[in-house]
């Protein structure tokens, strides 16, 4: 599904990411953990072609992301506030994203109705602009928008941040559900090793831009990760 080859990214002689090879399989949720500055966001930005790699290529379904654009139609993403148009209301934002993704008005309403549990009644019909919502609610909007239009890949950077505990649990269930029903491959980075072991079948630990561990999740994974980070 995603094939990363020999990718390198450096800022003025400091190498921030260096991955010789990484292959992600379809419908195998991929977790990325690591301390600050480990290169998690950099890797996601490279996959989404938001920054230029110094070296190497990334392919989605065999297409080089830096040279083609059709992969964007099957890839949803939410990395940070830079993915929200904050002067729109949530409804307007979803309608815009839906339109870009080729959804009809009805598709969009259906999708939002589906998301109502995740929104916990705090998003739709509130007559507020996104910029006037709390961080947590903005986060919900970004995540929900990333999953619109039946993507095959969804990239989420720190999705559990600033969500309340109930919503965190709902997000875990939502990801599980979508993975099963629609065969979506999630790429998730998080500092929360509990949640990431819950939703990801494969977890990669990044350290200073290099792959430190590549784990297929099992019952022992959480303890192994705890041991790794308890320095």
């Amino acid at each position: 599904m995603i094939h990363i080859q020999n990718i390198q990214k450096s800022y003025s002689d400091t190498v921030v990411l260096d991955i010789p090879e990484l292959r992600l399989e379809k419908a195998v949720n991929f977790g990325l953990v690591g301390n600050n500055g480990a290169g998690k966001t950099t890797l996601f930005r490279l996959i989404l072609d938001l920054i230029r790699a110094n070296n190497g290529t990334i392919e989605i379904n065999g297409e080089d992301v830096a040279k083609t654009e059709s992969w964007k139609q099957i890839t949803g993403s939410f990395l940070d506030q830079g993915f929200l148009i904050d002067f729109l209301s949530p409804e307007e934002y979803f309608s815009f994203v839906g339109k870009v993704r080729g959804l009809s008005k009805d598709d969009i309403s259906l999708y939002l109705a589906d998301m109502e549990e995740f929104f916990n009644g705090e998003i739709i019909g509130k007559k507020k602009l996104i910029r006037n919502l709390s961080m947590g609610n903005q986060q919900k909007i970004g995540i929900a928008a990333a999953m619109m239009g039946k993507p095959e890949i969804v990239v989420l950077d720190e999705p559990f941040n600033s969500l309340d505990p109930t919503t965190q649990i709902r997000l875990v269930n939502l990801i599980r559900k979508l993975q099963e029903r629609q065969q979506i491959t999630f790429l998730i980075s998080s500092h929360d090793i509990n949640h990431i072991t819950e939703v990801c079948e494969r977890i990669v630990v990044l350290h200073e831009g290099k792959i430190a561990q590549d784990i297929t999740t099992s019952a022992d994974t959480l303890d192994a990760l705890k041991a790794y980070f308890a320095v």
Binding site: Q81, L84, R101
Partner: peptide, 12 residues
């Protein structure tokens, strides 16, 4: 500029 990453990756 504040939502440029979205425009680039959304497939517009």
């Amino acid at each position: 500029g504040s939502y440029y990453d979205f425009l680039l990756s959304s497939g517009i």
